[in-house]
Amino acid sequence: MKKISFVAVLVTSTLISACGSLPQRGGDDASAQDVIPLSNDSAVVRPVTIDGVQDFENIDPNSIAGKAPADRVIYFDYDQAELRAEFLDIVAQHGRFLAQNPAGRVRLEGHTDERGTREYNIALGEARAKTIARMLQLQGVNAVQTRTVSYGEELPVDDAHNNDAWAKNRRVNIIYETAVQN
């Protein structure tokens, strides 16, 4: 049988470079060249927590937001940003209301179903929100009264993975902004 020596322990350049830039914790104890001090500093994570965000606002019924038309969700076909004919009337109601209330401000939140990629869906949700913004402006609403934001597929109202859920999630929420926003 071939004689095997264990005295010389190989240290490859791969492992040296893998450890090279790390602080050599315990390195002073390494008496032999073949002992590799291994630091796990690269795995350290200092967490960040975001809190204090308020999602639900109390709407004063006498405010503009309180008096605005009640139907505030517009639904879309799959992978489409065109307004469906059945929602023309709802958009028109909001258009008339905002034109008559120039102090009113709406945020148009675009959403998609979960199919397709997340960032592409962000873009698709924005296209839906912009469709509604354009329709409102055609009714005489000032551009400064509308703003758009897209959440893509990130905020579904229904978590299920089926046609019913997807139909509910493909939407634009018309949100009347109140004084306090974050």
Partner: peptide, 13 residues
């Protein structure tokens, strides 16, 4: 023998 090393490690590594 193809390869062999020693590592000095802690519980974390």
């Amino acid at each position: 023998l193809l390869s062999g090393f020693s590592f000095q490690v802690t519980d974390q590594t």
